[in-house]
Amino acid sequence: MKIGTIELGEQPLFLAPMEDVTDPSFRFICKEFGADMMYTEFISSDGLIRDGHKSVEKLNIYDYERPIGIQIYGHIIESMVEAAKIAEEAGPELVDINFGCPVRKIAGRGAGSGMMRTPDLMVEMTRQIVEAVKLPVTVKTRLGYDDSMKNIVELAERLQDVGIQALTIHGRTRAQMYTGEADWTLIGEVKNNPRIHIPIIGNGDVASPEKAKEMFDRYGVDAIMVGRATYGRPWIFKEIKHYLQTGELMLPPSVPERVEIAKRHLKKSVEIKGDRTGILEMRRHLSSYFKGLPNFKETRMKLVTLNDVEELFAVLNSITERWGDNTDILKELYNSPLNGKS
C-alpha cells in the first residue's frame, strides 16, 4: 500500500491520533511494536495560526516516528489552509484533516465530525488545503453525522475527486460517539466502489488480532487503524502482525516485560517533556499497563501520585518482584478483555 510516494507495505497498521494519549513518547513505544503509520494528536488550526504554545508543541516530530502525519482540525477554511501550511513546514510525510472527532466542543462548532453536516464546505475546505500544500493530504472521518445522514459513500468520491490521497473511515456516526458497535459495512462499500482508487483505512473496534484479520478479509480495506485498543497495550501491533503472518496468537507480555515497557515509556516521556510534565502525562499510561493484576490498588495509587522518577522506577521494579513469577497471572492476562478474549 502507498500513500503518494510513501510505501507502507502489505496490510499496514496505523496508530489512531488520540488527544492526550498519542504523544511522542507513546508513539515511540507503538513504533517499537510495529505501528507502520502514526499521527500527531490533532492540532487546532486556530491554535496554530495564533502561535498557541500547546498547539505548536504538538508539531514536534522525531525521526523514529517516520512516516508520520500531522493532523489538524477546524471549521474555517482560511484558518485550516494556513494551518496546513504551518504543519507542512514542520516536516511530516503528510497532512491529515480531522473530520471525525465527535466531541461536543469540537463537533458542536462545525469542526471534526460536525463538518459532515455541511458536506459542500467539507469538500471545499479539503480542495483548498490540497492546493495549498505539496505534501499528500489525507482525511479521517466517520460514516456520517447521524443515522439519517450516513453520507460517507458519496463523500468519499467527492474527497477523492478534490485530491486526497487516502481516506480513513471510523465505523460510527458522530451521534454514536464511541457507543455501540462499529459498523464496517459502509467502509467496505467505499472500498469496493469501482470509482475509488485511493487507499481506504478502516477504523473502529479493532481490539484483537482476530478482529483485524476479519476486517482485512471481509471488507478488503488497505490498512487498519487501531485506536483505543492500544491504550495500555501498545504491543497489539506486534500481536496483529504475528497473527496475520502465522494464524497463531501470541502470549501477551509477562509482568516483567510490561514493567520494562513501562520503564522505556516513562524514560522517553521525561526525556522529551522534563520530569514534571513527563511524569504527569505518564500517569494515564502507567496503571493501564498493569490492568488485571490482583491486589494492585495500593501500587496503582503510587503510580498515579508519585512525582519523582527514581521513586516511580522503584515502584515498577517492585511490580516485577511481587507479581513477576506468578504464571497464573500471565494466563489471566492472556484471557483478559484487554487481549480480546472476552
Rank of each mutant, 00 (worst) to 15 (best):
N98E: 01
F99I: 03
G100R: 00
K105C: 03
K105M: 06
A107S: 13
A111Q: 07
S113W: 01
S113I: 11
P119M: 05
L121H: 14
M125P: 10
T126M: 10
T126L: 08
T126W: 03
I129Q: 08
I129D: 10
E131C: 11
V133C: 08
V133Y: 03
K134D: 14
P136R: 06
T138K: 02
D146C: 07
D147H: 05
S148A: 14
S148D: 15
N151Q: 01
I152A: 11
I152P: 06
V153H: 06
V153A: 12
V153D: 10
E154K: 10
L155D: 05
L155H: 02
A156W: 03
E157A: 04
R158H: 01
R158G: 02
L159F: 04
L159T: 05
Q160K: 12
Q165W: 04
L167W: 01
T168C: 15
H170S: 06
G171D: 00
G171K: 00
R174V: 11
M177G: 11
T179L: 13
E181M: 11
D183I: 07
L186N: 13
N192F: 00
R195S: 14
I196H: 07
I198Y: 07
I200F: 05
I201W: 00
G204P: 09
D205C: 02
V206K: 05
K211R: 15
K211C: 07
D217Y: 01
V221Y: 02
